[in-house]
Amino acid sequence: MKMTKMIAPLALSAFLLAGCAKPPTEQIEAADKAVREAQQSGAATYSAQDFAKLEASLAAMKKEAADQDAKFALLRDYGKVEQLAASAKTEGERVKADAEKKKEEAKAGALQAKQVAQEAVKAAEDLVASAPVGKDRAALEAIKNDVEALNASLNQVQMAIDKEDYPAAQTQAKAINDKSQAVSAEIQSALAKVGKGKPSAAKKK
C-alpha cells in the first residue's frame, strides 16, 4: 500500500510531463503561413533583407523543433520553439505589410512616370498635328516617325507595369519623357523656320 502510494504520484507526474512535451504544431504552422504570405506579397523583392532574416528565423525555429523532437520525451522542452514561432509569425506579418506598402509605392511611381511620359508624347503629337501642309511639311516628315515610335513605346511601359517590373517601367517611362521633350524642341525649331508665308495646297512630288 505504501509502495502504491509512492508510485502512483510518480507515474502521474511522468504521464503529465510526457503529455506537456508536445511540439506546438499550430504555432509552427501559423509561423510557416506568415512567412509564405510574406513571400507571396513580394517580400523577396521589396523587403529582401527582412525577408531573408525572416526565412532564417523560420529555419532556426524548425531546427530547434527538430532538436527537441530528437530528445527523449521526458527531456523535451518546446518553450523556445513556441517563442521562435510567435516571433516569426509577428515578424512575417510585419514584413508582409512592409512589402505590400513598398510594392504599392513602386507601382504608384511607375504609373506616375507613365503618365508624365504620355503627356510628353501627346505634346509632341500635338505639335506635329499643328504643322503646316504643303511643301513646308518636309521639315517634319522625318520627325513624325520618331513621334510614332515614341507612342508605340508607351505600350512597353504598360507591359512592364502589368508584369510588376516597376523599375523597368520607370526607367522606360523616363527615357520616353526625355526623348519626347527633345523631339518637341526639334519640332518647335523646325516650325519656327516655316509657315511664315501662306500654307499652300499640297502639290505632286
Binding site: 516617325n145 513605346s153 526607367t171 522606360q172 527615357a175 520616353i176 526623348k179
Partner: peptide, 16 residues
C-alpha cells in the same frame, strides 16, 4: 527617315 522608328528604340534603350 531610312531608319524609321528604330533610331528611337535604340535611343530609349541607351537611356534606360
Amino acid at each position: 527617315i531610312v531608319l524609321g522608328g528604330k533610331a528611337v528604340q535604340a535611343d530609349l534603350l541607351v537611356k534606360q
